[in-house]
Simulated assay, not measured.
Amino acid sequence: MFRHVFVYRFKYLIRDRELVFWTFVFPVILASFFYMAFFNINKDEAFHPINVAVVYGGEEQYDAPFKAVIEDASKGKDKLFNLKDATSQSDAEQWLKKGRIAGYFTSGETVKLTIKDSELEQSIMKSFADQYRSSRLAVQRIAQDHPDSLKEELLKDIGNRGNYVKETAGGNSEPDSMLNYFYALIAMACFYGSFWGMKEVTDIQADISDRAARVNTAPVHKLLAFIAGSAAALVILFTEMLLLLAYLNFALHISFGNRAGLVILTALTGSVLGLSFGALISAIVKKGAGMKVAILTVATMIGSFLSGMMYMDMKYLIARYVPFLAWLNPVNLLTDAFYALYYYDSLSHYVRTMGMMCIFILLFCTGTYLIVRRRKYAGL
């Protein structure tokens, strides 16, 4: 009997084009828009060498040291400048007016910087000039006070800036804040699966629809019909999530780390979580399907917003100022689970989030069972 009801419900549910659209097609379309919006963000942030010119003052004692330093900064793969030697200041001025350079240096006892705009490139040039001046003053002071200390090694290292802060990552993967949008979208898609759970409960509530009335008069236990129907809905929803993951990974090249098995397990857990959430809301709310859909949609979108899908900083604001809310938001938990698999070598955070999601599933399923099993009808 379970198999018969399962097959019947599966055929019935898979023909619901509206639900298939909102639980699968819509997330795929939204993911495509996300990809088009974020595709070039990291590329645009790449640093490009700055076009600069140098006008030498004609005094060798000042020109030679500055020339050596700026030529060194204009070499190699990670060079800071594209250097142009101007034969005169008027040439440099013409290049600056035509936009061929961002600014030019004038060497001398005091290195001068001439710019037209005040943007990032010009700020880097100013920082370079300030560092050269401070290093040169340091050499002069050492030469004056401790001339015996002026060794070749000291002169080479005088301009170096030591970094005494070590940056360590939580795992081998590079941090990528853009991934949070896609992980939150997957979590939203799982919770759109609550529409499937809502449909299963609605179809066994005889006072809601004629189909539910027929189910209640059939020689099948209501709980058996609900479990078989929920299993069919879960198969459909989980298949949709697998197809969504495949689209994100193979078509849009969104990385999920190297733990494919746990990613699939997380998608399955998220599917059960969304399905059970929809079933609970449908069991609690005694109004029609329209009211239930509205409640589920609002709850899902609020959870998605707080997990950073619309505004990424919101997720971190919640974690900083209202941390308990992050643990009470199942959409955020599912988002965190995917990011933990991608970023962290340790599974401790992943296990905590999965454990919390399992608690939510248990609460949702228990609540649905207690409500549905006690509902009786005087007549059908």
Rank of each mutant, 00 (worst) to 15 (best):
H4V: 14
Y12K: 15
R15G: 13
V25Y: 04
V28A: 15
S32Y: 11
Y35D: 08
A37W: 00
E45D: 13
P49G: 07
I50H: 02
I50Y: 01
N51V: 04
V54C: 02
G57K: 06
E60R: 08
D63S: 02
A73P: 04
A73F: 10
D78N: 14
D78P: 00
L80P: 11
L80Y: 12
K84Y: 15
A86I: 06
S88Y: 12
S88V: 02
A92H: 00
E93W: 08
W95L: 13
G99R: 01
A102T: 09
G108A: 05
T114S: 09
K116Q: 13
S118R: 06
S118Y: 15
L120E: 07
M125H: 07
K126Y: 09
S127M: 13
S127F: 06
S127I: 00
Y132H: 08
V139I: 14
A143D: 02
Q144H: 15
D157N: 14
I158L: 05
I158G: 13
N160M: 11
K166T: 12
P175Q: 00
L179M: 04
I186D: 10
M188L: 13
Y192F: 15
W196G: 13
K199E: 09
D203R: 11
I204F: 03
A206H: 01
D207G: 07
S209F: 01
A213E: 06
P219G: 13
K222Y: 09
K222G: 08
L224M: 10
L224D: 00
A225E: 10
F226N: 11
F226Y: 13
I227R: 08
A231Y: 06
I236E: 06
L248T: 00
L248N: 06
N249V: 05
F250G: 10
H253W: 03
A260R: 11
L262H: 04
V263E: 03
I264Y: 01
L268S: 07
S276L: 05
I284W: 08
G288I: 01
A289P: 06
K292M: 07
T297D: 04
V298P: 05
V298D: 05
I302N: 09
I302W: 05
K315G: 11
Y316R: 04
Y316Q: 14
R320A: 14
A326G: 14
D336Y: 05
A337N: 03
F338H: 09
V351W: 10
G355K: 08
M356S: 12
M356N: 08
M356D: 03
I359Q: 10
F360N: 02
C365D: 02
T366C: 08
I371E: 05
R374F: 04
L380W: 10
